[in-house]
Amino acid sequence: MSGRLDGKVALITGAARGIGRAQAVRFAQEGADIVAVDLCGPTETVSTPPSTREDLEETVSQVRALGRKADPYIADVRDLEALREVADRSVEAFGGIDIVCATAGITSSAPSLELDDTAWQTMLDVNLTGVWHTCTATVEHLIARGGGSIVITSSIAGLRGLVGVSHYTAAKHGVVGLMRALSGEVAQYGIRVNTVHPTNVNTTMIQNPSVRKVFRPDRDEPTVDEFAEAARTMNMLPIPWVEPVDIANASLFLASDEARYITSVALPVDAGSTQR
């Protein structure tokens, strides 16, 4: 059976789990080989439990179980040279890169006027400059291939303000600016660049005690159900969050030839959140 990404190679950052893993597996189901990149470790200022080497290996195993090739790479998106090395090595191994998913991201929270300099800077370094690094390390490989698709995971916070995360909102808006500039620069090479804007996604980034507490300050140790009740109020559709596969499906569409004339688009996958 022919897949929608047969013969394609996709480099995905943040691939150890969550949205990145869902993209890796979903793309592999459609015939793509996967370059799976993740930090596999903690980032300062971030309270989300860190991803691990085992998480990244699990992603690779799931891709290989589908009969596709996958290689794991541990790299920090803040390190441009490390990403260049990953891209170069994966081109050697897989013959090229056609699709790039800049998915790696972090979150932390504090009111704008109380946020400290380190939390602000780390956020910009990972969620904005890290995306630029990912594109910068790979674009010339896509040009060499004669075309391609770059899918940047932004957020509803790339389209609207969210309380308590001004650094995150700034960075996620920032990648839209990057996407719009880059799409104009690479269109002549047959490369498309788009952003995806998820509402809350059912991943470790939100399913942890510190985020639950942000959503339910009225509870000492909010349960998942109490969190869901509050999260539901953000969306138009009666759901608290979307699943990683929903973001992977939107990314798959944008990565595939079905979207061959779609570029410079900011696509919300947000259950109506940004219009609520």
Binding site: L162, R180, A181
Partner: peptide
């Protein structure tokens, strides 16, 4: 472009806060 888009995001959150 990235920085100036980001300023809009900052403003939207600040307006809320």
């Amino acid at each position: 472009s990235a920085a100036k888009h980001a300023v809009v995001g900052l403003a939207r959150t600040l307006a809320n806060e």
